[in-house]
Structures are given as structure tokens and as C-alpha cells.
């Protein structure tokens, strides 16, 4: 829960030494409460205070970065429900699905398209931000081979590995060991093993549940196993549920500072009809998704 200025003040040294650039500790505390100053400006603050304040002042939606290098994508950090209240911090990332059941050639082709997808629009660089490799075959060997192709053909592109199969996950993740990938597919039955694998590989763990109660439980479970960076999938697939779940998730995070759901959201938008898919995607983009997974990348989509 966010602390008030007075609550913060109680944790400061109360010497009014002015080293933070503010006339008094109280003035500094007020700025902190309004998120207009950061704690590191005060050199004398105690470790204890740092810990309490650090937790309280963390943005309600945990910041994290998928991928490394120039193509890394930032997510989270959001603080509001409506963009006119302040602003939305990180734009929703677009990921295209590659199924491991495709031929090596098809996989290489899509990977190359993603690399080439960048267009320049009045100074803004727009592109497909990530690849979501899905273990459609449920065959660890195929998933591994596909992961290898993606790593070779689209180096530097952030990757989401989507599988519930631990063996497949282990086989594939080694190609992205230092690349901050997302490992998506932790659920009630495999949470522990997936959490360990994510930790070992410094991956963001994507958890998938059936509804918001189960999602809360699962999030607490993987957190207790030591996972810090989590991506939430409530299981919503239909437009109506996507709006409902995403809205309730963002409210829980920003209005209640409810930690188990204070993470970015991933939505799966794949549809047979690509125009319909684009419209569902536009709903996700407007309503709180941090990453959306699409099945195809017609050029007009980005």
C-alpha cells in the first residue's frame, strides 16, 4: 500500500540536514509520497527505511524487461487506469506466434520477417517486438530444434517460450540463457519445476490460470518459490473476458496495490480471421495488455 507523506517522514533521519535538496525531512517525505523524488537523494537513510520504503514506493505494476540489447522490451511500471490521469508508461508489445510444428524453413521465414518488420513512421520506429515460440507439437525435440532456428535467424529479438512441458522447456531455454526470455506455461501442476527453471535461466515466468482467483494463488506460489518477474495470463481469450480480467487486474494493482497481481499482462489474441484478430488486439492495446500474441503479421498490422 502506498504510504502517506507523514508515514514516510517517520522513517527518515529527521535531522533536516538539507542534503537531499529539500529544506526539511518532511518536505522531502511529501515529495516522495507524490513520487516526485527518489529515496536515493537522502544519503543518511537507514537500511530498514530503505527496505520499507522501497517496497511501498515500487510501481504497482512491477517493471521488467524481456530480451536484451537494443531490441529489449520494457513492460510494467504502470500507475494509472486512464491515460489522461498521468500516462501509460510502456506501450504494449506485439509478439508473433511461431508454432514448432511448422517446417524449419517456415520458421526461419517468419523469424526473418520479424527481423525485417521495422518501419519508420514520422520518426517513430514500429516493429514486431517479440517472437512467441509455441510448443504446438508437444514434442521436446521439435521445440528444441525450433528454438535453435529462432535463436539463429532472429538473434536479438526477445523470445517468449510457450510450453507446459518441462522437458521441452528445458531443451529450448538454453538457447536464450542470457537473453532474459519469457518462459510461459507455468500452471497449477508444473509450477514448482517451471519456477526453478525460470530462476536458473533468469527468465520472466509466464503463469497461466483459469480465472483471477486461481491466478492470485499461482502468483503467490511462484513468488514464494523465489520468482521475481512474473507475467500474468488469466486465461481470458474472448473479448468480453479480456476487458473484464484486464480491467480488474489493473485496478487490483493500481487502486489496491495488490501485490500478487501487480505484474504485466500477456493476452493471446490468435484468430482465424486476421482482421478480427487485429480488432481484438486493439482492445488489448487500449485496455492494459503489456504483451499480446498474434498469429500472423500482415504488414499493415504494425
Amino acid at each position: 500500500m502506498a504510504l502517506s507523506g507523514v508515514e514516510i517522514f517517520k522513517l527518515l533521519p529527521k535531522t533536516n540536514c538539507k542534503k537531499c535538496g529539500h529544506p526539511t525531512c518532511l518536505a522531502f517525505a511529501m515529495k516522495l509520497a507524490q513520487r516526485q523524488a527518489t529515496l536515493d537523494s537522502c544519503p543518511d537513510v537507514s537500511e530498514e527505511a530503505k527496505k520499507v520504503l522501497g517496497e511501498a514506493s515500487a510501481p504497482p505494476v512491477r517493471p521488467m524487461t524481456v530480451g536484451t540489447g537494443d531490441k529489449a522490451v520494457k513492460m510494467g511500471e504502470e500507475t494509472v487506469l486512464f491515460r489522461h490521469d498521468k500516462k501509460f508508461v510502456n506501450p504494449c508489445a506485439l509478439a508473433v506466434e511461431i508454432k514448432d510444428s511448422l517446417s524449419a524453413e517456415e520458421i526461419a521465414n517468419i523469424a526473418a520477417q520479424v527481423v525485417d518488420s521495422e518501419i519508420d513512421r514520422v520518426g517513430q520506429k514500429l516493429r514486431i517486438d517479440a517472437i512467441a515460440l509455441t510448443n504446438d507439437s508437444n514434442d521436446p525435440g521439435k521445440f528444441e530444434a525450433a528454438a535453435k532456428t529462432v535463436a539463429e535467424k532472429a538473434p536479438g529479438v526477445p523470445v517468449i517460450l510457450s510450453t507446459e512441458n518441462l522437458e521441452a522447456a528445458e531443451a529450448a531455454i538454453r538457447f536464450f540463457a542470457d537473453k532474459s526470455p519469457v518462459l510461459y506455461g507455468a500452471n497449477q501442476s508444473n509450477a514448482e519445476a517451471m519456477a526453478n527453471l525460470a530462476k536458473k535461466n533468469k527468465a520472466i515466468l509466464g503463469i497461466s490460470a483459469n480465472g483471477l482467483d486461481e491466478l492470485t494463488e499461482l502468483s503467490e506460489k511462484v513468488k514464494s518459490l523465489g520468482v521475481e518477474d512474473i507475467l500474468l495470463d488469466s486465461g481470458a481469450r474472448k473479448a468480453k473476458d479480456i476487458i473484464e480480467h484486464n480491467t480488474l487486474l489493473r485496478r487490483a494493482a493500481t487502486k489496491k496495490n495488490f501485490k500478487p497481481l501487480g505484474y504485466p499482462i500477456i493476452n493471446f489474441m490468435q484468430r482465424d480471421d486476421s482482421l478480427h484478430e487485429a480488432l481484438i488486439a486493439s482492445i488489448g492495446i487500449a485496455k492494459y495488455a503489456s504483451v499480446i500474441v498474434l498469429s500472423s503479421i500482415e504488414k499493415w498490422k504494425n
Partner: peptide
């Protein structure tokens, strides 16, 4: 396309 999506938003 918009009509179809409205349907999905209203009915689920």
C-alpha cells in the same frame, strides 16, 4: 468485422 467484435464483447 467491427460488428462481429461487438458481438464478442457483448456475449463473450
Amino acid at each position: 468485422a467491427v460488428e462481429n467484435t461487438i458481438e464478442e464483447l457483448m456475449q463473450g
